[in-house]
């Protein structure tokens, strides 16, 4: 059911965990199926230097979390704010089952929340 890239990110995500003294934290719950994604960012000179996630969700949710961290890392806060779920899906090789597209929104929403928290 899942493409190779999705399985790879699911199997060995590199950005799992929390950041102590994070500059921004975003937590979202998925109204659709009841999953939770928590994202931590560390910002220096307006650039996302470090990013970590914790996810309670399906294969696509975990893979999307990892994909998001990979695309957001190294971006300026302004650039990161403009990211969409399509960027997440692109990072996943462009192949996510239709019923699982909402899981990629979960990751984007968590990032938006973390940035908002940082700016506060």
């Amino acid at each position: 059911m899942y493409a190779k890239k999705v399985m790879e990110y699911f199997k060995s995500p590199k950005h799992v965990g929390t950041i102590k003294n994070a500059d921004g934290v975003g937590e979202v719950g998925n109204m659709k199926c009841g999953d939770i994604l928590k994202l931590y960012i560390k910002v220096k000179d307006n650039v996302i230097k470090e990013i970590k996630f914790e996810t309670f969700g399906c294969v696509a949710a975990i893979a999307s979390s990892e994909a998001l961290c990979r695309v957001a890392k190294g971006k300026t806060v302004d650039e990161a704010e403009k990211l969409s779920n399509e960027d997440v899906i692109k990072e996943l090789g462009g192949d996510v089952p239709a019923v699982k597209v909402h899981c990629s929104f979960l990751a984007i929403d968590a990032l938006k929340k973390a940035i908002k928290d940082y700016k506060k």
């Binding site: 199997k11 659709k32 199926c33 009841g34 999953d35 969700g57 399906c58 294969v59 949710a61």
Partner: peptide
């Protein structure tokens, strides 16, 4: 604290076949 489809797929990678009642699946 764990979602069933994720658990099922990890087991599947080890050759173990099960099923789940999770919403995500």
């Amino acid at each position: 604290g764990i979602e069933g489809e994720s658990l099922l797929m990890m087991l599947n990678m080890k050759g173990i076949a099960v099923s789940t009642g999770s919403a995500c699946s």
